[in-house]
């Protein structure tokens, strides 16, 4: 455990130093990220108080929460593969492996900055929506922590598949499209999945974000207790239980295979 935390700390500091070395890009990135709420506020004026968002605090509340959560979960998903791809591209994967740090530490560490950055994004956007656009949060952000953790873990599992794919095939990630676009379109991120045509509405229940976003909105926008969303949490636990071991297995297999083939460090 100590080794894992050591790795996470090392990578976090490294990525923070690296991000801060590009000062303009860092500040610009924050501005763009915060502008997301403004961009969603404009259609919110058009959609107005559409009854489908009635119990969800309106379109702005619905879409801002969905959007920041999708960002956070995609960070959980993409952190591993991005980190491995980047290390390969700049030629540091070999010396990183040569340190003897645990593989799990390298995985966890490589995505800590991305995840933390996305968490900051959640706080900033919800803060702007609350203080500037009058969004009313009925529950504390901390109370959604178990939902965030569970949903993130399911995305981590998909992320491990993606990382395994990157290790073996270097470029191209079919999972990103399926998970990213699939969640955005069919997972109830910007609009409830009930508004979708019937021939695609069946997809939503197969996506973990459907349950995560629903539970999260219930807690912070309506003030529900976690127990009121036990069924959503249960489904998320099932997702984790089924996908995480498979994802870990796939990643370790991919690394072993790439070391055998001699392609681990190739870009």
């Amino acid at each position: 455990m100590k080794e894992l935390l050591n790795c996470a700390r090392a990578f976090f500091i490294r990525d923070a130093q690296n991000a801060l070395s590009y000062r303009f890009a860092f500040v610009y990135g924050q501005v763009v990220s915060m502008a997301r709420t403004l961009v969603l506020w404009l259609p919110a004026q058009l959609v107005g108080d559409n009854p489908i968002f009635k119990d969800q605090g309106g379109f702005l509340a619905y879409s801002v929460t969905g959007s920041v959560m999708l960002g956070l979960f995609m960070a959980s998903y993409g952190g591993f593969a991005t980190s491995i791809g980047s290390e390969r591209r700049i030629g540091t994967l070999e010396p990183v492996f040569a340190t003897g740090a645990p593989l799990s530490g390298l995985l966890l560490g490589g995505s800590t900055w991305t995840f933390a950055h996305s968490l900051l994004d959640v706080v900033l956007n919800l803060g702007i929506a609350t203080w500037i656009f009058g969004l009313k949060l009925q529950g504390s952000i901390l109370s959604i922590l178990p939902i965030v953790v569970l949903t993130s873990l399911t995305f981590v599992a998909f992320g491990l598949f993606s990382a395994a794919f990157t290790v073996l095939f270097k470029q191209g990630d079919p999972f990103r499209m399926i998970i990213g676009a699939g969640s955005a379109l069919f997972g109830g991120v910007f609009y409830p999945s009930e508004v979708l045509p019937k021939f695609v509405s069946w997809i939503g229940p197969f996506l973990p974000i459907t349950y995560g976003a629903r539970a999260m909105r219930g807690v912070i926008l309506r003030g529900d207790s976690l127990m009121q969303h036990w069924s959503d949490l249960f489904v998320l636990i099932l997702f984790c239980g089924a996908l995480l071991p498979l994802g870990i297995g796939a990643f370790y297999y991919a690394v072993r295979r790439a070391k055998l083939d001699g392609t681990l460090y190739q870009y």
Partner: peptide
């Protein structure tokens, strides 16, 4: 010590 020239984070 590998033979690759690029093995550091250039911005750090």
């Amino acid at each position: 010590v590998g033979a690759e020239e690029r093995s550091f984070y250039l911005r750090l």
